[in-house]
């Protein structure tokens, strides 16, 4: 469904220096698949996600979604960012409504759908608060609801839980899996946490240090629905985590972290 074909990206700095960020990436993601992209910071994994989103144009190569070449953003591919990127001048309800209004949904229907989504991310009762009045975890729940509102078939998640404390992070991971189990959207999930990637994904894609290249793709053969407590005790889960951590370390021969 998503086909990334020989994508490269080079940034030009102000002094006309060329900084290669991504090098010849090819990857196919099936419909309904949950794929994580794992790599050290600065490896270009977020850039890859932005290219799939249509926010950034690749320097070479192309991305197609359902056979259509990506040339810009579309409501078919909904992003969720680490920085939440909520509209600070809109309330929780206003943020979730935004996409529905852009889609031309009638006001009554949009309101009903927005309330339903807010309840789904456990924020019922917070509809009229502004983002600044919410905790980090709550902000990310709003951002997820805002994106789910316009029913994208693909979710592009850019280290969505990276700015949250450990406890909030696990709760949101569980909630995300719950939501995903319901309609099995295609998810492309960027993270630098090995454990998070293994816990959530069907496949984990590892990348090298900058300029980012594909290193290895590991299929995670663990039963679903997954429970964190059960997995932490599961030998196979531990093996995946340790194996991938070793793999990542081997790439870093050279400069110390």
């Amino acid at each position: 469904m998503i086909a990334i074909e020989a994508v490269s990206k080079t940034f030009e700095t102000e002094k006309r220096r060329r900084l290669p960020a991504l090098c010849d990436i090819s990857l196919a993601v099936a419909a309904g698949e949950f794929v994580s992209i794992l790599g050290p910071s600065g490896c270009g994994k977020s850039t890859l996600l932005y290219i799939v989103g249509g926010f950034v144009a690749p320097s070479a190569g192309a991305v197609t979604v359902n056979g259509q070449r990506v040339t810009g953003p579309s409501p078919d591919r909904g992003p969720v960012f680490q920085e939440f990127a909520l509209f600070p001048w809109k309330t929780v309800l206003g943020n979730v409504m935004y996409g529905l209004q852009r889609q031309g949904v009638a006001r009554q229907q949009a309101l009903a759908r927005a309330r339903e989504l807010i309840a789904m991310v456990h924020l019922a009762g917070y509809e009229n608060l502004y983002p600044k009045e919410l905790s980090g975890g709550m902000k990310q729940r709003v951002a997820i609801a805002r994106t789910l509102a316009y029913r994208p078939s693909i979710l592009l998640m850019d280290e969505p839980f990276g700015a949250l404390d450990a406890h909030t992070r696990t709760r949101l991971q569980n909630d995300l899996l719950d939501i995903w189990e319901r309609d099995r959207k295609t998810v492309l999930f960027v993270t630098h946490s090995v454990e998070e990637a293994v816990f959530l994904s069907d496949r984990v894609v590892t990348m090298t240090r900058a300029p980012g290249r594909l290193k290895q793709i590991i299929a995670i053969d663990l039963p679903r629905p997954r429970s964190r407590a059960a997995l932490l005790l599961d030998r196979r889960f531990q093996d995946y985590v340790v194996g991938i951590e070793r793999l990542m370390d081997s790439a870093d021969s050279g400069a110390p972290a």
Partner: peptide
């Protein structure tokens, strides 16, 4: 923050919108 604009564009907002 460009990600604010991206969020809007992904939701279907045109450039002017």
């Amino acid at each position: 923050e460009p990600k604010l604009a991206w969020s809007a564009q992904a939701a279907g907002a045109s450039r002017w919108r």
